[in-house]
Every structure is written in structure tokens, then in C-alpha cells.
């Protein structure tokens, strides 16, 4: 374990190459976790940003539309959660009103159920990746700590082998070991922040979809009374 000048010792490459195989695995795993965490953060940010604009535009168009059947022809094929909720309501409405006799109570319940199920599906899909953020945020520090403990154990073994407790012998091993904790925190902190932030965003999207579904349900319910 040669002691080199302090400048090169702290370089991440050097710290990684000097480390034990277990610590190396921990570091690689944490680095991948960090990569995926940030991929989710950026991807979710992009997705939600587009989603809000689409919902805004869809609601405006819905309010301005004269007839939901005609609006359904224009908008039902869009790849948007709110459009799918709308399409689910319309298709349930059509199925329920196709027969000769219309069970109004049953139709209302089925409409509510169909749109609620669609909303739940959409929210599930939206928040699919967020559980990974939660996992990384809670587990990465422990994984890093495991790497640190392992590395420090190895450093102490090195001290025993060299029969010298000078700082030059101990320091490189401990620096490598602490580097594992550093990567763990590096991955975990953004993950926790992003998880809290995006959970809030998902809740707001769900509330907005519910409000839209309620409004559409009211419209259909009024239409149901006029029918038959």
C-alpha cells in the first residue's frame, strides 16, 4: 500500500481502483442506482410537464365542445390519461344506453366505476417508477455504509499486516471505504427529494383527473335523465 502524494489519492478513479472487490461491487451498484434515479427524475419531470399542459388543453377543448360525441371522435384516440378517462366514460355510456331499457342508477354506478378504474390505472402507470426512487432513497445509505464498514475492516487488516499504525498506512484504505458512503448518499439524497416531490405531483394529477371525471359524470348523468 504505497503512500502517494495526497493529490492523486482523492481522485475518484484512484479510490475506485484501490478498493476491495466487495467495495467495488457496492460502488458500481450505487453508481448504477444513481444513474437510474436521475434517469427517472429527468424522465418523470418531462412526462409530468407535458401531462399538465395536455390536461389543461383537453379540459379547455372539452368545455368549448358542443357535443361530447363529436368531441369524442376528435379526442378519444389521444395518448393521454385524461383522454383515456374520457374515452372510458363515453364507451361505458354507449354500452349502457345501447339497450332498449336504461337502468339509470346502474348506468351512473357503472360510469363512476369505469372512470375511477381508468384513473387508478393511469395513476399506477404514472407512479410506476417512483417506487424505485423510494427504494434507492432508503436503501442506498445502508449499502454505502456496508461498503464503508467492509473497507475499514480491510484497512485494519492492512494495519495489522504492516505492523505500523502510521496515518500513511491507514488513510488510503479509510478514504476508499468512505468513498462508498459518499456514493450512497450521492444516490440517496436526490432520490428522497425527488420521491417526495413527485408523490405530491402524482396526487395532484390524480385529484385533477377525479375532478374531471366527476364533472363528466355529472354531464352524463344529466344526459341520462333527458334520455328515454
Amino acid at each position: 500500500m504505497p503512500s502517494v502524494s495526497t493529490g492523486a489519492v482523492l481522485s475518484p478513479i484512484h479510490l475506485f481502483l484501490e478498493a476491495d472487490i466487495v467495495v467495488k461491487l457496492v460502488m458500481v451498484g450505487l453508481l448504477l442506482a444513481s444513474l437510474w434515479t436521475w434517469a427517472i427524475i429527468f424522465g418523470f419531470g418531462l412526462k409530468v410537464g407535458g401531462l399538465r399542459k395536455e390536461m389543461q388543453r383537453f379540459e379547455t377543448e372539452y368545455r368549448e365542445a358542443d357535443d361530447f360525441d363529436e368531441f369524442h371522435r376528435r379526442a378519444a384516440g389521444r395518448d393521454q390519461p385524461i383522454a383515456r378517462v374520457f374515452a372510458a366514460g363515453v364507451s361505458e355510456w354507449r354500452r349502457s344506453t345501447a339497450g332498449k331499457t336504461i337502468d339509470r342508477e346502474g348506468t351512473r354506478e357503472r360510469l363512476a366505476t369505469a372512470m375511477g378504474a381508468t384513473i387508478a390505472t393511469e395513476i399506477d402507470r404514472l407512479s410506476d417508477r417512483l417506487n424505485f426512487l423510494a427504494t434507492v432513497g432508503s436503501v442506498a445509505p445502508f449499502v454505502g455504509l456496508f461498503g464503508t464498514v467492509w473497507g475499514i475492516m480491510r484497512a485494519f487488516t492492512g494495519i495489522a499486516a504492516a505492523q505500523s499504525s502510521s496515518l500513511a498506512v491507514v488513510a488510503p484504505g479509510i478514504a476508499e471505504a468512505l468513498f462508498a458512503t459518499a456514493i450512497g448518499l450521492f444516490a440517496a439524497i436526490p432520490a428522497v427529494i425527488a420521491y417526495n416531490r413527485y408523490s405530491h405531483v402524482v396526487n395532484r394529477v390524480e385529484a385533477r383527473l377525479n375532478r374531471f371525471a366527476d364533472g363528466f359524470h355529472a354531464t352524463l348523468s344529466r344526459r341520462l335523465e333527458m334520455e328515454g
Binding site: 493529490g7 492523486a8 427524475i41 429527468f42 424522465g43 418523470f44 412526462k47
Partner: peptide, 27 residues
Amino acid sequence: SERTGLGISIVAHAAVFAALTLSFLKP
């Protein structure tokens, strides 16, 4: 959007890694 995010993430990690390496290599 997730592929875009992954690309941005990889680039950002490489940038952070390079910055750390270069700043530590400085005297």
C-alpha cells in the same frame, strides 16, 4: 421521456465524475 431522462442522467454523471477527477488532480 424515460429514454431522454436516461441520456441526460448519463451525461450529467459523466460531467460530475470528470469535474471531480480534474479538480482532485489539480495540486
